[in-house]
Design a protein around this nucleic acid. Structure first.
Lengths: 211, 211
DNA sequence: GTGTGTGAAAGTATTCACAGCC
DNA sequence: GGCTGTGAATACTTTCACACAC
C-alpha cells in the first residue's frame, strides 16, 4: 500500500513542496552529499522537519531511523511520486518573449518534459525557431493534437486569445494546461489547470508592503 | 477599525484572491455592469459566494443586503485593501527574454507599478532598451538603490546569479522581491519574498496527470 | 544518542446556515 | 423575496511530542 494508487489522499499543499525537496536534493547530491536528515533539509528549504517527514510519509517509508535519508534513493522516490519517471509531451502556445523564454528554459527537458511544438497566430513568426523548432500556425492546432499525444499545453498568448485557446486544447483532449495569460481561465471540461499570474504576485507584494 | 491597521489578521490565502476579484470586477465594469452579487462573482472566479463575502468582511462592509455590491465602489475598496491607491517603484534584474517579457507587460503600469530600471551583468546589452529604458550595469545596482526608492525587485537572472542578486538588493534595503529564478531563495534579513517557479508548476501538473 | 514515522493537538481555511437589512 | 455579514461547524494543514528503530 505504498506509493502509487492512493494519490487522492495527498494534501494539495504537499505536492508543490515535493518538487522543492527534489530540487534541493539534486543540488545537495551534486555537492557530493549522500545522506541528509529532515532537519538539514528543513533548514535548506525553510520549513519544519516534521513537515518534510509528514509529506514523505504519505508515499512510504524512505528514511532510516537514527540516520536520515539516502539522497540518491530519495531523489528516485520523489521522482516516482511526482510522476517524473516517464516523459510528458508539452506544447507552448504563444511564441512571444515569454513563450520563447520558457522554451529556452533548460530545466524543462532535464526533468522529462518534452517540448514538441510551439504555436502562434502571427503569420510573420510562423516557421521561425523560438527554441522549440519551427513555430506552427495556430490554425493547425487541432490537426497537430490529433496526431501527437500532448499532455501539457503552456499558454503564453495575449489575454484576449487565451480563453479560446484553452477551450480548444481542452476540447481536443489535452489533459492539463499551464496558463500564463492574465485571465482566470475556466473550463467546464475536466482539466488540470494551473495559473501563473504576474499581476496577482505584484498585488500580493503590494498588500504586504502597505502594512 | 476598518481597513488599514489590522492587516496581520487577514488570512494569507485571502490576499491573492482579492487581486482576482479586482481583475474580474474591472472586466465586469468595462462591460457596463454596475452591481454584482457574491453569487455571480463566485461563478465568474470559480469559488464559493461565502468565500467572497468572508474575504471582503475582513476589510469592512462593502455590500448592500438584498442588492449586492456596487462595482465601482468595490473596485475602489479592493484597490485600497491591496495598497494600490499609491504607486510602487519596481526594478527588473536580468534583461533576458523573461525580464523583457515582464517589462513589456502592460498591466504593470496600469495598476500603479512603476518600472524605473532594468539591470544586467552582460556588457553586450547595457544601454539597450528592453522595455524599461536603457539597461543598466549590475555593478551600479547599489548606487542606483541609494539614489532611488525601490519597493520591488523582480529577479529574472539565471539561477547561478539569483541568490547573490537577492542578497544585494535586500542588503540595500529593498523591502520585497519577486523571484523567477529556479532557486528557493532565502534571506536572514526581513524581506517579503515571493517565488514564481516554472519547474514546480510543471511537476505539480505531472503529479496530477500521473494519477 | 540520533532521527524517523505518526497519532494527537493546535492552528488555519472554507463552507454552512441563518439573522438582519434592503 | 433577495442578498449580505458573520458566528458556528467542518475540513484541511501544520506542528508537537514520543515510541521505536538504528
Amino acid at each position: 500500500m505504498s506509493q502509487s494508487s492512493r494519490k487522492q489522499a495527498i494534501p494539495t499543499a504537499t505536492v508543490p513542496r515535493l518538487s522543492q525537496y527534489l530540487r534541493k536534493l539534486q543540488e545537495v547530491q551534486s555537492r557530493g552529499t549522500t545522506t541528509i536528515s529532515s532537519r538539514l533539509m528543513a533548514d535548506e528549504v525553510g520549513t519544519n522537519p516534521a513537515q518534510i517527514r509528514k509529506d514523505l510519509s504519505y508515499f512510504g517509508e524512505f528514511g532510516i531511523r537514527g540516520v536520515g535519508y539516502d539522497v540518491d534513493r530519495l531523489i528516485t522516490e520523489l521522482k516516482k511520486c511526482l510522476g517524473l519517471n516517464r516523459s510528458w509531451n508539452v506544447i507552448i502556445i504563444g511564441s512571444g518573449k515569454l513563450g520563447t523564454a520558457l522554451a529556452l528554459y533548460r530545466g524543462f527537458q532535464k526533468q522529462g518534459f518534452n517540448l514538441i511544438g510551439m504555436f502562434d497566430a502571427d503569420a510573420k513568426v510562423i516557421g521561425k525557431d523560438r527554441g522549440a523548432g519551427p513555430v506552427l500556425p495556430i490554425t493547425g492546432l487541432e490537426k497537430f493534437l490529433s496526431e501527437n499525444k500532448v499532455h501539457i499545453a503552456v499558454v503564453t498568448t495575449p489575454s484576449a486569445a487565451a480563453q479560446e485557446v484553452i477551450d480548444r486544447v481542452v476540447a481536443a483532449g489535452v489533459p492539463s494546461v499551464l496558463n500564463f495569460a492574465p485571465i482566470r481561465a475556466a473550463s467546464d471540461q475536466p482539466v488540470i489547470l494551473r495559473q501563473v499570474d504576474l499581476s496577482t504576485e505584484l498585488m500580493t507584494l503590494s498588500f504586504y508592503l502597505d502594512k
